[in-house]
Amino acid sequence: MERIRFTSLDVFRGLTICLMIVVNMQGEGAYPILGHADWFGFAVADIVFPSFLFAMGNALSFGKTDLPAGEFFVKTLRRTVIIFALGYLLYWFPFFKHTDAGWVMKPFEDTRIMGVLQRLALCYAIAAIAARYLGERGLLALSAVLLLGYWGILLASAPPELALTKTGNIGNYVDQLILGKSHLYPWDEGFEPEGLLGTIPAAVNVIFGYLAGLYVRKHSPGQFVMIRFICVGVALILAAVAWGTVFPIGKKLWSSSFVLLTVGIDLIVLAGLIAWIDQAKQKFGVGFFEIFGKNPLIVYLFAELLAVISWQFDIGGKSVTGWLSGNLQTYVPGAPGALLFAVLYMLVCWLFAWTLHKTKIVIKV
């Protein structure tokens, strides 16, 4: 199949990175709807990470499918390890901390192992291997097995009153057993939101992104594809709501109903982009998000590293981030100020992406 790019898919990826930076950088006082649901429920921020996975699946559909088995597995393993390692190093960075005894290396035993990029890496590996050996029907069947199997594991491994709770679900036990408590997310009752078991249903987001990208490649992003995506998206959302009555929608647990809901939303958003870009031939906003989408992984790393660095240095007893945000709150208080700070931060990251674009630098892992 000819390896060509479609603008609507590239813009979707850029839009995802843009929104991810905005929701991550709002800080205190943000609009509640732009935050994450505490456990079950759904908020705007909850769509970002699954859309990142969906976008990765889109990109996967443009990869070479005829590589020899050895070369394929070396390439897949290499990319998985690199993305996982980047995520781990991001949490370990800046590698040193200041104590009463001076600067010492941050201990490995206190470093979080899992995270956004780490889950992304594992989901990529699962989806890439599945896509190589399974056709479209096989991938749909595998997705059903993974979603139903995850639900079954949760229900069968703990009493009903604990099976879907934050500290009582089997995924929490698996993470503590394999990773250790000191290597888990430290700010949510010891619960790791990007845990090992939750990677199983999260891989389905990548698989559906792959199937969507494959469908666009086969049929081109026209009205037929747009209508089909809307119909499937609505059907998945309705299925998610129905399933959610017994397996509630929740990002932190990454429930199977949450997968159906987010995939449904992503398909409708992608259909909207096809209507705007490919059908109506509109240009407004396209170039802005395309620039974000050319180097999504590097832009995400830049955004996270810049945030970590700004938290390490103080101005007037506050971190650089806190000082800037606090001063902005003087002029634009409350939630509007928190959102404005996040948008301005996102624009700084866009300038970094624009610099890469102007110098024709595309960094691939």
Rank of each mutant, 00 (worst) to 15 (best):
G317A: 09
R79G: 08
V343C: 10
A121W: 00
L120V: 08
D188K: 08
W311H: 15
W354I: 00
F288C: 11
K283Y: 01
G244M: 06
L306G: 03
F42C: 07
A240S: 15
G316W: 08
A69L: 14
I361V: 15
F12H: 01
L148H: 09
H183I: 05
R5T: 05
F54Q: 10
I230W: 03
N58F: 07
V44Q: 05
A131L: 03
R137S: 13
G35Y: 08
M226W: 07
K358P: 06
E136V: 14
I126Y: 03
I178A: 12
G209H: 08
L117S: 07
I82S: 00
G35Q: 08
I17V: 13
Q282W: 13
I207D: 00
L142C: 10
L90S: 05
G272P: 01
K360S: 15
N24P: 05
Y345G: 02
M346Q: 09
L267R: 01
E136L: 13
L214I: 12
M226D: 11
G250W: 09
V286N: 02
A240Y: 03
D266N: 14
F302H: 06
A303H: 02
E109D: 14
Y173L: 15
A127Q: 07
F341L: 00
G322Y: 03
G209L: 08
S220Q: 15
E2R: 05
H98N: 14
P68D: 07
G326T: 11
V204Q: 09
E136G: 02
A239M: 11
F352K: 10
I230R: 13
A130M: 06
M20C: 09
F208V: 04
T76F: 01
A121R: 10
F72E: 09
E304D: 06
L142Y: 11
L140R: 03
A43L: 14
G322C: 01
A342I: 02
G213C: 10
A275I: 01
V48S: 11
F52T: 08
C123T: 01
A128D: 06
M56P: 03
A125V: 03
W92E: 07
F49C: 03
I21M: 04
L297F: 03
L236I: 04
F258P: 02
K360E: 14
F302L: 00
V269E: 00
I265T: 11
W151S: 04
H183Y: 09
C18N: 04
V104P: 07
L164E: 07
I33C: 08
A163Y: 10
I298P: 05
V225A: 00
E192L: 12
L214A: 15
I129V: 15
G222P: 02
A303F: 10
I268C: 14
I126N: 09
H219P: 07
A30R: 11
M226V: 12
I315M: 11
Y300H: 05
A30W: 08
L140A: 05
